[in-house]
Design a binder for these strands. Structure first.
Length: 213
DNA sequence: CAGTCGATTCACT
DNA sequence: GTGAATCGACTGA
């Protein structure tokens, strides 16, 4: 049974906090993607925190580049990156401006626009798989680098907005190591998900790439 | 400027 | 469970 989400946009102050506070607080919140064909709404069920310049797992660890520039800007904006030659993933920028950090949106439950999401996710075998995984989530919502830098706190009919939704009770939040993060960054238990939610993606440890013999 | 590899997904065994 | 797909960003020389 799905309860109607609160439609109030999250204020920028919500994101202007330490990323480890923001990340679990995002679970149960609702992301709205407005497309020419109509809206897709997603209830967040899994996220990961990337904590600025002190986090070896973060894209911002080695400083500002053309790719990660949005992470160094104001909170509440969207950082989209391209990876594995095929996929996009999206973050919400957190913390005070200049202290780059972000929350990777890893999975969610599609509440509205399921048929629009399915057109982009033809390989999904069921509704739970539409946004089960960060690149799947971005694909389902039609998010790519064109949306890098979008302000998710802006009111109105913007391409991407974060709404208040119905935050998950803290006793339903679980956490553990981040998925696919190499090296020392892999030890931080900064992945957060909703307990027993079927849309949460499976954990996988980092796999170093083999060299061709 | 060439080499390496990624905050992944999918098909196949 | 294993390997391929696929390319741009980053690194170091």
């Amino acid at each position: 049974m799905i309860t109607p989400p609160d439609r109030t946009p999250l204020p920028r102050d919500f994101f202007d906090r330490p990323v480890l506070e923001v990340a679990p607080d995002l679970l149960g919140r609702v992301l709205v993607r407005t497309t020419p064909d109509g809206p897709i709404t997603l209830r967040l069920t899994e996220v990961e925190a990337y904590d600025g310049p002190n986090d070896p797992g973060s894209h911002a660890y080695r400083g500002r580049t053309a790719r990660n520039g949005v992470m160094f800007g104001p909170p509440g904006h969207v950082y989209v990156y391209f990876t594995y030659g095929m996929w996009f993933c999206m973050n919400l920028v957190c913390g005070p401006e200049g202290r780059p950090s972000g929350v990777l949106l890893r999975a969610g439950e599609v509440l509205e626009g399921e048929e629009l999401a399915r057109k982009r996710r033809l390989s999904a075998r069921n509704d739970k798989e539409l946004a089960k995984g960060p690149a799947r989530l971005a694909t389902a919502l039609g998010v790519d680098r064109a949306l890098d830098g979008t302000d998710a706190c802006e009111p109105g009919d913007t391409p991407l907005r974060m709404l208040t939704g119905t935050p998950v009770a803290s006793d339903q939040v679980r956490n553990g190591p981040r998925t696919g993060v190499a090296g020392e960054g892999g030890v931080h238990p900064w992945r957060f998900w909703v307990a027993n939610d079927p849309t949460v993606s499976p954990y996988r440890a980092h796999v170093p790439k083999r060299r061709s013999s």
